[in-house]
Design a protein around this nucleic acid. Structure first.
Lengths: 207, 207
DNA sequence: TCTCGAATGTGCACGCTGTACACATGGTAT
DNA sequence: ATACCATGTGTACAGCGTGCACATTCGAGA
């Protein structure tokens, strides 16, 4: 009888809700994930969501996991451009950093859900929800840093904890560009700031 | 008749609301700034706030301005410890960066209001609300960077835009420590990450 | 000193939110 | 066929920000 559904039982409401959540958050960010809007988009009563998610935050976490996966996919597709006079390992790390910022700028709403708000980092629910699980895009950073050790550019003793300065730099840059004063600068300034932030972070941990 | 107030007119409700907002946000962050709670704390009807602030966001911005001022005051009180083999200008910049992160860790709720959420950067309303006005703590960063130019450590040509890598690094570090996985590390790891993040950022822009 | 308008605070109401509870529905195993 | 259990619905509630009309009080001009 309903436009969106013919049967009483939906079939796979859980996935449908996450998909609708992706739609809504893409433009509206974390704030756009209104439970009643999500269920309305699927053609289901608001409370139906509670059969699959404990609460709104739980749904947000599931959406965040999907976004992180998509983000990782996009970052993987990025080919590190061959920089003259730069080792391959360093170029790869540079690409990871710029990929992180690029995704944030390209998909502000999604980035907000996955890495923006105070609750953003509590993702999970789907597969690979181990205790020590790490957000998908971060895995690339860890790999790239390991690569720097392999190539001899980063001393093994300096490897532990090296992810924090790197992640801090790109994470802060993304947020300053999305919500902060950096976002009010012209695009070329933003681009230059991103590039310089990544360069500075890498240079900083290598010296 | 009311416990909190004897006269119909409050006297200086605007300031009282901001003060109450400071109380509530200190523990609850931006989310703790519930309009009805703020007015209740002052002993006034919810709508009284609308005589002094256009909406909740406007009150938040006023509170944020006060927080930024307090943050600046604390950062100013920090004496840059004399580091052996480090120029005074660089020590000052290091102190600014660590001060930024320290404030965030010491006052998570306040930091959230002033620099955390998507709306955090829109502060103002009080004095010094010029168009080009800059958040108070940021002014220290700009000064410290100018100092690096004066001391000859930073090439004048490299000065423009140098604030972005620096701010990005400390901002990202603070947020990763407050909401991200860095916050789940033991305190000494967090401290080391902060120190290394600041060092890396400064080294990065100098090379 | 009286009066009147402007500032300030109140009460009531509305729509919206997340979510608890009891109930309806229907696939699935016995 | 029947009983069970997962899944979706309906109703309801408290709390939120906020608009609107009204009450109160302060301060300026007569």
């Amino acid at each position: 009888m309903d436009l969106a559904r013919a049967t009483y039982h939906h079939g796979n409401l859980r996935l449908a809700l996450i998909d609708a959540g992706l739609d809504l958050t893409r433009t509206g960010g974390s704030k756009g994930l209104v439970l009643r809007d999500v269920t309305r988009a699927v053609g289901v009563s608001p409370n139906a969501a509670y059969r699959h998610f404990a609460d709104r935050e739980s749904l947000r976490a599931a959406v965040a996991t999907r976004i992180q996966a998509d983000m990782a996919e996009r970052m993987l597709a990025l080919q590190p451009p061959a920089h003259p006079g730069m080792s391959e390992a360093r170029a790869r790390l540079t690409a990871v950093g710029l990929g992180y910022i690029s995704f944030a700028l390209a998909e502000p709403g999604w980035f907000d859900v996955a890495f923006g708000g105070p609750d953003a980092f509590r993702a999970g629910s789907a597969a690979s929800n181990d205790a020590g699980a790490v957000p998908a895009p971060l895995a690339f950073l860890l790999d790239a840093l390991d690569g720097l050790v392999d190539s001899g550019e980063l001393a093994p003793a300096a490897r532990p904890g090296a992810e924090w300065p790197c992640w801090s730099a790109v994470h802060g840059c993304a947020l300053l560009a999305l919500h902060g004063p950096l976002g009010q600068q012209p695009p070329d300034v933003i681009q230059a700031a991103a590039q310089r932030t990544v360069d500075a972070a890498i240079t900083g941990i290598l010296s």
